[in-house]
């Protein structure tokens, strides 16, 4: 390598101004797609949503003979299954890759107010959730139109389900984010999330079936059950339902997020 003769400009002594939050958001957003791995994860997310919708449309068209009525929620629900699996992984990687790749050393040296960086990451995770959800809904509308065009019966209702869908997707993504902040390890965070999403409901279901009083306990921690009423419109929820929802969210999202933020702000970065 030849060695440049040029030297940097003389060191300044004027006080620079702070880093605005919008800039941190921009940087974190860029980090969310600027590596091969993160780019293809996002690409796969979109591709799988389209593929799932397509398959659902074909199944409906073949099986339903036009008898099955689809509404806005039908196709959104199909996309939802994909989002539930993949969006939290996107959120998890936003946090854990700083630790596994050790880039946190540079990130936090440039912005030592770590909570601002984490908040920016949270913002980016929300942006991607909303982008995916909107994408899924647009796909839903398109497939609704397509299904109607091939002679299926379509209604344009199901708005409450859509609102519930958006809220639940955001919450699930945040749960992935929160556990990632707590364990700071990619595989561990993914395992915890999938355990939460697949194993916990099964275990609670078995408990409910076998033990009489278990149900009155499990409804406070059964996330899928507690979020169920959201799909009928949160404006229709009873006080009891709100109570179960709030407690479940505090347990699965609030506690790990709080502990995780505390851990990150105190951790030694090396």
């Amino acid at each position: 390598m030849s060695t440049a003769t040029q030297t940097p400009a003389a060191p300044r002594s004027t006080a620079p101004s702070g880093i605005p939050f919008s800039r941190l958001l921009q940087v974190e957003f860029r980090k969310s797609w600027d590596t091969k791995a993160s780019f293809w994860l996002l690409f796969a997310l979109g591709a799988v949503v389209v593929a799932a919708e397509f398959i659902a449309a074909i199944v409906l068209a073949v099986n339903g003979d036009g008898d099955t009525t689809v509404d806005l929620g039908t196709f959104a629900g199909v996309a939802g299954f994909v989002c539930e699996l993949m969006l939290p992984v996107v959120a998890i990687l936003l946090v854990t890759s700083e630790w596994t790749q050790r880039t946190a050393m540079v990130t936090f040296a440039l912005e030592p107010r770590r909570d601002r960086v984490i908040t920016a990451k949270l913002g980016v995770a929300l942006i991607w959730t909303l982008v995916t959800v909107v994408f899924a809904l647009v796909m839903g509308v398109l497939f609704n139109l397509f299904y109607g065009a091939v002679g299926g019966s379509v209604t344009w209702t199901g708005g409450a389900g859509v609102v519930g869908f958006v809220i639940v997707q955001c919450a699930l993504m945040l749960i992935g984010f929160a556990w990632a902040a707590l364990v700071l390890n990619t595989p561990a965070a993914i395992v915890i999330y999938y355990a939460f999403w697949f194993a916990v409901p099964t275990i609670l279901g078995i408990g409910n079936a076998l033990i009489g009083w278990f149900d009155s306990f499990s409804r406070w921690i059964f996330f899928q059950q507690a979020t169920g009423p959201l799909y009928d419109g949160f404006w229709n929820m009873s006080a009891g339902e709100w109570g179960h929802l709030i407690v479940a969210v505090l347990i699965w999202l609030g506690a790990p997020l709080l502990l995780g933020l505390r851990r990150i702000s105190r951790a030694e970065v090396k």
Partner: peptide
């Protein structure tokens, strides 16, 4: 306020 403009830091070149 913007530490990178005041202090240049290189602690571990492989931390990228």
């Amino acid at each position: 306020p913007n530490p990178g403009r005041t202090v240049g830091v290189l602690l571990d070149a492989s931390a990228q």
